[in-house]
Write a protein that binds this DNA or RNA. Sequence first.
DNA 1: GGATCCTTGAC
DNA 2: TCAAGGATC
Length: 476
Amino acid sequence: MATHLVWFRNDLRVNDNLALSAACRDPDARVMGIFIATPGQWRQHDMSPRQAEFIWQHVQSLHAALAQRGINLVIHEVDNFDDSLAHLKTFCTSHNVDALFYNYQYELNERQRDAAVEKMLGCEVICQGFDDSVLLPPGSVTTGNHEMYKVFTPFSRAFIKQLHEGLPECVSAPKARGAALETQKLNAFDYPRKAVDSTLFPVGEQQAINQLRQFCRQPVADYQQQRDFPANDGTSRLSAYLAIGVLSPRQCLHRLLKEHPQALEGGAGAVWLNELIWREFYRHLLVAYPKLCRHQPFISWTDNVVWQQDEAQFIAWQQGQTGFPIVDAAMRQLNATGWMHNRLRMVTASFLVKDLLIDWRLGERYFMSQLIDGDLAANNGGWQWAASTGTDAAPYFRIFNPTTQGERFDAKGAFIRQWLPELNDVPDKFIHTPWLWAQKEQLTLDYPQPIVDHKQARIATLAAYEAARKSEEKQQ
DNA sequence: GGATCCTTGAC
DNA sequence: TCAAGGATC
């Protein structure tokens, strides 16, 4: 009887799990699962305590779901990826594992780890990896010259064309392989954890599927009109589940098409589909350009920008004390919930980089340390877009105005008031410029003055980028 | 090789 | 109205 081991990583689900499904294909095989926590590695990757908690919750529910199907999931803990290699080797030997199944992760450390695992296990254990966390495998959507696209729109068109030729199918959850197992009490990992608001992010695979279904019924059709207004609940908030693999993108695609069959043709739901494709775009880029995993900008000359080293301003940004209400409300939402509305991720990132002229990598890192949906590809892609250092980035001279952004997307300050109670009494007219109101009424607010003058900051940033670009020209 | 295009904008 | 320049076909 063959023994199959499923190594769970960022795929904490039983439905539509390619590795799990493949391991269970042989009805006679003995199937086991393993999850290896690597706190040292997580620290290196700045994983947020909220994401750690979310993983912990879902490891437990996966353990229960597998036990019900007669599959034992063991939870082990080592320090880092290197240690996980030796650990896996020992485990395979002592349990006579014949084949190891896992779903690919596309970050550099992760890919190096997997390559080392395959090498280490050699021909003793057959290793099978799967492109499970993407709709189409990285490298499979390319230009006429067989290169990775560097601009989103042509990528998206080619991507949709490929979907028309054939959709990646979902696989079902494995059937029970014997009597249900008793679930054991599991020991939590040695990593800081922070409570997750279960009304925003209910725990469990079925809950995630329910949220997906609910979103695809109607909200997805209104997404295009609603998504930019943070006071409305217009986005799916499914990123937290996608990031740790409680949901797969295939499940998202199929549920979308079930409710809105015209989404692939540009009908209702097409804009949300494009968001799923953005997720793919950034993953594919990570594989095509490993330097993105090494904290390097895609556009090299932007590395010559001389960043400000202003600890006080950086802390003000982190804590939501910049004096710009939309920025501060957004940062407080992030700090309090682990999640930030997408429009505001652009606004706050732009503010850090283009108003404070602080290195985008510090912001990227801080986001990772707070986000429940932290994902290297998406977070890095978003930051490089905002900092004008990436593929298909915003032109560097196009600088968001934090006040205008607030006025456009939170006109009456409904979102701002939700997170900045100290501005409760400020009239709508002044909600984005409370300093003007305080001045007019001659009163003191319990809220900081703007820490920069946007107009001046804009000019300084343009000059800094311009100088960086020129210094590159000189070198050549 | 030339034409067209480029997520989210600001002044 | 402005804004660079590369990506793509």
